[in-house]
């Protein structure tokens, strides 16, 4: 009798041990839904998701949200067994990386014709379609600047002036997509030689390179540094929260990247993925994007935002995504050689 009782106890222990295995199937829900990987901001997602699910009541969005780098790394790591059906609101540069691995499914969403030409992959059908643009923007802390008697910069060139020594923060292009778009746009805008010369000079003024694209603006907003090289959405978000910052759009032109949508090859819910791709180019969707971004995919939808100049679209430099993707490794190696291997500049 005792033996049997003890056996039961042991069985209970093992049940506990293997429960994890069994529980897996319980936790893995069986509902039909479309798996979306995104780097959009949480407060934007809510509105987009509600609107989408209203238009397509049969589809539920299951959203995996993280920073661009993590989402891209996740997607690549899952390459052999993709979990995402659709990538939505992820940098076009990242989508080009996925495309380079042959992970994207070409699809022409309904209503594609209306999209501005530079907002789509030129191939037909396109492998990705843009949603909105985020552009390089300086966050300039007016209170700290006044304390230190630092003038407001107007241009990229201004940032190389000695008065800004140690006051500027920018994202490290090796860890942040925003950082890379800055570097690649400078190179495209100024040309190879002048571009690197500019960065050499800028490097002398950099207080710190951060590992995220939002961080420089956050650091400027909290007065840790005076100037953060960031992007306009983060800048206005910080300003709305009450940060004493001005948004500066350097006059030479602004580098940018695009939030874009693409369908993953072999999507388990292809139908749902296509529905989301369709919805993301609708006027309704673009009107929602326009609440956060000045430049969106459909012409005539974008409207001026507070703090952002009305002619933002015109200020964008030409950004050749294909060139940037093709030269990424080379550019990062060069950047790394010049600025990472060097010891901290003396301030």
């Amino acid at each position: 009798m005792r033996a049997i009782k003890s056996g039961k106890m042991l069985a209970a222990v093992f049940a506990a041990v293997f429960l994890i295995g069994g529980a897996g199937s319980v936790w893995a829900q069986a509902k039909t839904k479309v798996n979306v990987y995104t780097a959009l901001e949480a407060d934007q997602i809510k509105a987009y998701k509600d609107a989408f699910e209203k238009s397509y009541p049969d589809v539920e969005m299951a959203i995996t949200r993280d920073s661009t780098g993590i989402v891209t790394a996740k997607l690549l790591a899952e390459k052999n067994n993709p979990q995402a059906d659709v990538v939505w609101g992820v940098a076009a540069t990242s989508l080009l990386v996925l495309d380079g691995e042959g992970m994207l499914e070409p699809y022409a969403p309904k209503g594609l014709d209306a999209v501005k030409p530079f907002f789509r992959d030129p191939r037909n059908p396109p492998y990705w379609v843009g949603m909105d643009v985020w552009a390089a923007t300086l966050c300039f802390n007016t209170i700290e600047a006044a304390k230190k008697n630092i003038p407001k910069p107007e241009s990229w060139e201004d940032l190389t002036k000695p008065v800004y020594k140690g006051q500027i923060v920018m994202p490290n292009p090796a860890s942040s997509g925003t950082g890379f778009l800055d570097v690649s746009s400078w190179l495209q805008m100024m040309g190879d030689q002048k571009g690197w010369a500019f960065m050499d000079a800028l490097h002398q003024n950099i207080g710190v390179y951060t590992h995220s694209g939002s961080k420089p603006c956050n650091l400027a907003a909290s007065g840790e540094y005076v100037i953060g090289i960031s992007f306009e959405y983060r800048a206005s978000a910080n300003k709305v929260k009450g940060a004493p910052i001005d948004l500066i759009f350097p006059k030479e032109g602004l580098g940018y990247d695009m939030e874009a949508t693409a369908i993953i090859k072999g999507a388990k819910n292809m139908d749902g993925a296509k529905k989301l791709a369709d919805w993301s180019v609708t006027k309704e969707a673009n009107e929602l994007y326009a609440k956060n971004f000045a430049v969106v995919a459909l012409p005539g939808v974008g409207k001026p935002l507070e703090f952002v100049p009305a002619d933002l679209e015109k200020r964008l430099v030409k950004n050749d995504f294909a060139w940037a993707a093709a030269n990424r490794e080379k550019i990062l190696a060069e950047w790394n050689k010049r600025y990472n291997a060097k010891s901290e500049p003396k301030s």
């Binding site: 790394a73 690549l76 990062l332």
Partner: peptide, 10 residues
């Protein structure tokens, strides 16, 4: 972190 998250170079 830089290799994996920044550059997706596994």
């Amino acid at each position: 972190y830089k290799r994996v998250v920044g550059q997706q170079d596994f």
